[in-house]
Design a protein around this nucleic acid. Structure first.
Length: 723
DNA sequence: ATACCGCATGGAC
DNA sequence: AGTCCATGCGGTA
């Protein structure tokens, strides 16, 4: 346990000036407070009486005061009961990917013996080799043609007053005032997750997260690592913007204290006036008017044209976290890591085009000003310290600008990012470095999912709750989800008269019959459910080229050729779009794998990608089936001949009939195609008119690699090219 | 034929 | 109605 600052000079006077213990359960409610407890959202600390403070410091606060509160869970490893329902204990456990929680001790044990474990650097980031790399970051923020000032962190009074309102102020699920409801409404579900995220963000890969974490407790800090988390989630989760994909936020850092994590700014924050950073820190509390920060801290928006570049609220922090002064020991180097904004990768971003669209406001606020469409090179260090140089550019679009980073493909691939993952841009001051971390969608999703599950459990029992949507947080999907959700409510209420569904929305309502057992196939580690008799739903001339689990039945080997034709009708639809409501982050279906603008390379004959494997597998199945049918047909013929030894005339007649039959309806279901040459077919398939329905289906799959601009010809073309 | 580039379009807010 | 942004698509190298 690190000692509390012995001098009040290191703490905000207001931290000690409160008259009442912040703990509403404190038996000596009116006792004068002496010591700070957990850190509040506004950066201050809860004022606790000595007794409560001691309990908090010893990690027994929840044991004593929250016994009757909800939210107690058991560690999956050691079974220890942990309160998961308040801000006090929030940092004391980790949400597990597979569900459940784990206490910090167990988490640390696991990680410390893990194969990828690397002990945390003994000191702060910039004394580490990785940190040294950041010194070379090319962006000179100070020399930028524009100046910055911190974003408007307006509104501290609201939260602060709420938090001091003594009414359930530390319980996320019990807002007590209208203001609080407003403040918490967007934060309620995320607050816990954010705290968890900060805890979980630490890993051994020197990501931004670990940078943020490691500095907080000095050389003796035991840093729990989480190999499954690549970067810390946003510390402040804002209400999603237009696309629900970007966030902008300042930073704070958790500090562990004996497993019961206090948001221990107290070990990091220097509030003595000797350091220029303390000016920043204090000024941040007062607003954005500090001349110092406006010149030296590129924290926000333009000074030269205020208003024009005002970051819209959805990108601005909604909670007045202060910028964090990071240091491990007094009188040593101090640096500040400021998360600027994050971007959830869209299909386009993660595609092969190599361009990542940036939120305009964030680009204008946090990145160098550019006047030419060619932009400027932007050097960014990733979480491993590797240096990347992108071209920060813009297009003129609708009398506006559309900002994007060019040349990100190598970086994206290096980080193994895909659509739905989040890239987090941060700045390190005073070095003025730009760094980028990332967060895999699966991690964020599981975490968010868990939290939301917990938060929705009650409402679920009420019967009017909706299924929790765990779709990717991509903007369009999200907004689509919103629409679908409201419509689903109508379905559930039986109000079908006004229900108008788009075709894609209708897919969302399709669920497999409970009595059907799917066969599970695993592709690239992801399990898919295959329903042999999956319903084939379509409407004429409307395509839905998904091969995701929802429509996996389309890929299932079906005996019904008509059904195959139907499926083909869907699959062959010329319109192939990436907007499929059933698709999720990480989806490896053909549609999601495709390049958005048709720039993906052709799949080679020996390509072993998932899609090609699937196609090949289906082709083999088809060939085997045909062979089998041939065999049966031959046997039948032989049987007939032996059964009725006809005269020459009869045999002749029979032969004629046979010829006529095969000529008239050649591709009959059980018909043998004597010209069928499997090997040749593999090399160069027959003309389209002679292909079987399965083949056509396959062709569609191939075509899906690259959405054809001219559908029919492109299909044929691709068909020939790919095989 | 292909990849890249830049603009246009349209959905969402 | 205006803005933002994902992505489609035509032009070009």
């Amino acid at each position: 346990m690190l000692p509390f600052p012995s001098s009040s000079s290191s703490m905000t006077p207001s931290s000690y000036s409160a008259r009442f213990c912040f703990n509403r359960e404190c038996p000596d409610f009116n006792r004068e407070c002496y010591r700070p407890g957990w850190r509040l959202r506004n950066g201050d600390f809860a004022d606790l009486c000595n007794r409560c403070a001691s309990a908090y410091e010893q990690g027994r606060f929840c044991d004593i005061f929250h016994q009757r509160a909800s939210g107690w869970r058991c560690c999956e490893s050691c079974g220890k009961r942990i309160h998961c329902g308040c801000v006090v204990s929030a940092p004391a456990f980790m949400l597990l990917d597979a569900g459940g929680i784990e206490c910090l001790t167990c988490a640390r044990k696991k990680v410390s013996v893990g194969p990828n474990f690397r002990p945390p650097p003994p000191s702060f980031l910039f004394q580490s080799p990785i940190a040294d790399k950041f010194q070379d970051l090319s962006i000179d923020w100070n020399s930028s043609t524009r100046s910055y000032r911190p974003p408007n962190l307006s509104g501290p009074s609201i939260l602060q007053s709420d938090l001091h309102n003594r009414g359930d102020c530390y319980e996320f699920n019990q807002p007590t005032s209208k203001d609080k409801a407003t403040a918490y409404s967007t934060e309620k579900h995320r607050g816990m997750n954010d705290l968890m995220g900060r805890l979980m963000s630490v890993n051994s890969n020197n990501h931004t997260s670990s940078i943020l974490y490691n500095q907080k407790a000095g050389p003796n800090c035991k840093v729990p690592t989480c190999p499954n988390v690549n970067a810390y989630p946003p510390l402040i989760s804002l209400k999603e913007g237009t696309l629900g994909a970007q966030r902008a936020f300042p930073v704070t850092t958790p500090v562990e204290t004996n497993g019961h994590l206090g948001l221990g700014g107290r070990y990091l924050w220097r509030k003595d006036d000797s350091s220029p950073l303390s000016h920043l820190h204090n000024d941040m509390n007062r607003g954005a008017d500090s001349p110092l920060e406006s010149k030296n801290w590129n924290f926000g928006i333009h000074l030269d044209t205020p208003g024009k570049y005002q970051v819209v609220p959805r990108y601005s922090p909604k909670i007045p976290y202060k910028n964090q002064v990071l240091q491990n020991l007094p009188n040593e180097s101090v640096s500040v890591v400021t998360p600027l904004f994050e971007k959830i990768l869209s299909v386009s971003d993660a595609g092969r085009v190599g361009r990542m669209v940036l939120p305009k406001k964030c680009a204008e606020a946090f990145l160098p000003q550019i006047s030419q469409t060619d932009g400027v090179p932007l050097t960014v260090h990733d979480s491993t310290g590797k240096e990347w140089t992108f071209q920060f550019r813009f297009w003129v679009n609708n009398n506006s600008r559309m900002y994007f980073l060019e040349g990100i493909t190598p970086c994206i691939q290096s980080m193994q990012l895909q659509a739905g993952d989040t890239v987090i841009f941060s700045r390190v001051d005073p070095e003025k470095k730009l760094i980028m971390g990332f967060r895999k969608a699966s991690v964020a999703q599981s975490s968010v999912q868990e939290t939301e599950l917990n938060n929705n459990r009650e409402s679920c029992t009420n019967g009017d709750a909706e299924p929790i949507d765990i779709h990717p947080p991509t903007g369009k999907n999200k907004s689509t989800m919103t629409t679908t959700r409201s419509k689903r409510q109508k379905v559930e209420k039986g109000d079908l008269s006004e229900l108008k569904l788009t075709w894609e929305e209708a897919q969302g309502f399709i669920l497999p019959p409970p009595n059907l057992t799917p066969s599970i196939i695993t592709i690239e580690g992801i399990e898919f459910e295959e329903y042999e008799d999956a319903p084939i739903i379509g409407k004429p001339n409307t395509g839905f080229g998904s091969t995701c689990s929802a429509n996996k039945g389309l890929l299932a080997e079906q005996d019904d050729e008509e059904a195959q034709d139907e499926a083909e009708g869907l699959l062959m639809s010329p319109k192939s779009t990436s907007k499929h409501p059933r698709h999720r982050n990480g989806c490896t279906c053909i549609v999601c794998l495709q390049s958005p603008s048709g720039s993906s390379p052709k799949h080679g004959r020996r390509c072993s990608c998932t899609v090609c494997d699937t196609v090949r597998r289906r082709r083999e199945t088809l060939l085997q089936r045909k062979k089998k049918q041939q065999q049966i047909e031959i046997e039948n013929k032989a049987h007939k001949e032996t059964e009725s030894p006809n005269s020459d005339e009869e045999r002749h007649q029979s032969a004629n009939n046979s010829g006529t039959t095969s000529k008239d309806h050649e591709p009959s279901k059980a018909q043998i195609d004597l010209n069928f040459q499997p090997e040749k077919d593999e090399e160069s398939p027959p003309p389209r008119s002679k292909t079987t329905t399965k083949d056509k289906s396959l062709h569609h799959d191939e075509a899906s690699f690259k959405p054809p601009r001219s559908s029919s010809s492109a299909h044929n073309k691709l068909h020939v090219e790919s095989f």
